[in-house]
Amino acid sequence: MAYSEKVLDHYTNPLNVGTLDKSKTNVGTGLVGAPECGDVMRLQIEVDEATGIIKDAKFKTFGCGSAIASSSVATEWLKGKSVDDAIKIDNMEIVEELNLPPVKIHCSVLAEDAIKAAVNDYRVKNGLPEIKFDDSIVH
């Protein structure tokens, strides 16, 4: 199975690899996946408290190239979005962006889940109720 150019590109030069200070109240952290399943994604957002806009996003991912590329794309899209808009990112948009084959759709689902988990972590830290999301269909 050959990888799409875009997956290769993000894998070779991933954007936003790193760690934000999770002790800060304006940082939300989402850790999804499991080592036994072969992918773990940690996605973090740093929110401008005055505007509610995500001013920075970082990730670290253990997984295949498609999982790394999905996290790279997701973090790039998050920057500049409001927290409310962030959770509107749909995994299928990532699939389209990276031309992921069906067997790799779960990588995009993982990225969507990581975004939601990071947003919820941010909300809980700031006294807001957790948002209940429907379970993703593809797992």
């Binding site: 760690t19 996946g33 499991a34 080592p35 399943c37 773990v40 670290k60 991912t61 993982l110």
Partner: peptide, 24 residues
């Protein structure tokens, strides 16, 4: 490994068995 959250946890001495992983 620089990109791996698990490597970072290992380096920080986090017990990975203590984490509740979201199995899917």
């Amino acid at each position: 490994r620089e990109m791996s959250p698990l490597w970072e946890m290992f380096k920080e001495g986090v017990d990975m068995n203590s984490i509740e992983w979201a199995h899917h």
